[in-house]
Amino acid sequence: MRGFFKRPITKLSFAPPAARPGRAGLAIVLIVRNEARHIGEWARFHRAAGAAHVYAYDNGSTDGTAAELAAALGDRLTLLPWDQKLIDGRSGREIHNQVLAYAHALRNFGGAHRWMACIDADEFLVPKRADSLDAALAHLGDIPSVTLPWHNFGRNGHDAPPEGGIVANYTRRAADPLSGARGVTNFKTVVDATRVTALKVHSVWIGGKAVTWNDRGEQTDHKGRADPAFYSADHLQLNHYYTRSEQELAAKIARGSNQSVEARRHAARVRRNVANIEAREVEDLCGPDFLARRG
């Protein structure tokens, strides 16, 4: 049928890895492509925050992304080639490449770490009170997953990329992180990989159940994440720099979706999300404040 679009496969199940002796720390999983302009800042920020390791899946970068990561992270980096588009042979459906990377990382590397966080190059994990990611989560004991809602930052009035980086120059975000009706609410999850049995980009199943906790230690199901009463960023906040400057927004639209989505639909959706993010903004200095605490 002309114009027929097959929905991609976006959920994968697997047997979780065994815990390795002495496992510790929080490792970050990143799938990345052509982010040389900003990836060094991203890597230095998370190294300062105490990330134990970064597993970076390079989706065909042709710029200096790999070199920037290596310079910032040294032996805390594992870089894997991940330039592919896999199709299920029976159904003809694309298997979401980002979900594949996350599943591979959790299954193969997750047993070495207490926590793993699968995030993007435009997402920063910010400890709100503590001086490290580990310390920000230490009060949670044996809890296996922590939901982090997006805190979406817009263009902040920048037409071109400003000098001084992202964290210092983007300090206004959408006032309501749970503005789901506007289409720009989502979540990432910090997990104990040894208890994960399935995942999507924005959801994780623990022991076969769609459950998660907030950073106060309160439990809910996946649907309950959007309940304002469950919302928390008391200890750890996920800053999502959705657009950065107008020039970078235009480039993001031109790159297209990471799935096989028609270009005009993708562009309209991104512009609509930006308008919603910028409709009502508040100042948020948690990123600069963290860097100031770290000296």
Score class of each variant (00 low, 15 high):
H202I: 14
S203K: 03
S203E: 07
V204A: 04
V204Y: 05
W205M: 15
I206K: 13
I206D: 13
G208Y: 11
G208S: 02
G208E: 07
K209M: 14
K209W: 11
V211L: 14
T212L: 05
W213F: 09
W213T: 06
N214C: 13
D215H: 09
R216V: 12
G217L: 11
G217H: 00
G217Y: 00
G217F: 08
E218Y: 00
Q219D: 15
Q219V: 07
T220N: 10
T220S: 10
D221T: 08
H222S: 15
H222Q: 10
K223F: 06
K223T: 10
G224N: 11
G224R: 13
R225D: 04
R225E: 04
R225P: 02
D227V: 02
D227I: 00
P228L: 01
P228W: 06
A229C: 02
A229F: 01
F230W: 00
S232M: 07
S232F: 13
A233Y: 03
A233N: 08
A233G: 08
D234A: 14
D234S: 07
D234K: 15
D234F: 07
D234P: 02
H235V: 04
H235D: 08
H235E: 12
L236C: 03
L236W: 07
Q237F: 09
Q237G: 15
Q237W: 15
Q237K: 15
L238M: 05
L238N: 02
L238F: 01
H240I: 00
H240C: 01
H240E: 07
Y242E: 11
T243E: 12
T243V: 13
T243W: 04
R244V: 03
R244C: 00
R244M: 03
S245H: 14
E246K: 14
E246N: 13
Q247K: 15
Q247W: 13
E248V: 06
K252P: 11
K252F: 10
K252W: 05
K252R: 11
A254T: 02
R255V: 01
R255S: 09
G256D: 05
G256F: 02
G256T: 02
N258T: 13
Q259C: 06
Q259R: 14
Q259W: 04
Q259P: 13
S260Q: 12
S260L: 10
V261R: 14
V261T: 08
V261D: 05
E262M: 05
A263I: 01
A263L: 05
A263K: 02
A263W: 05
R265L: 14
H266P: 05
A267V: 01
A268Q: 05
R269C: 06
R269T: 02
R269G: 06
R269Q: 06
R271S: 03
R271V: 08
R272I: 05
R272H: 07
V274E: 03
V274K: 09
